[in-house]
């Protein structure tokens, strides 16, 4: 389970063909950029879930 939490953000961050588009834009940012930036806190949240999951 711990590893599943960790793999999700990696797969999303590397799903390049999926996020390589301009639309939908957000605050003027093409999707490519706001998606990748948004993935940073999301990845952090997944690592936190893995950490919680591991702690006794």
């Amino acid at each position: 389970m711990k590893y599943a939490y960790l793999i999700i953000p990696c797969v999303l961050a590397l799903a390049t063909p999926f996020y390589n588009t301009v639309e939908p834009t957000l605050f003027g940012f093409p999707f490519f950029y706001w998606f990748l930036l948004a993935m940073i806190p999301v990845s952090s949240a997944f690592i936190y879930l893995a950490y919680r999951n591991e702690a006794p």
Binding site: Y3, L6, I7, P9, C10, A13, L14, T16, N20, F32, Y33, L36, L37, M39, I40, S43, S44, F46, I47, A50, Y51
Partner: peptide, 19 residues
Amino acid sequence: AYGFFAVPYTIIAYPLVFV
């Protein structure tokens, strides 16, 4: 866009560090 590889790079680095 290619220069933005730094972002996915640092995203996948930390799960690796955690393990």
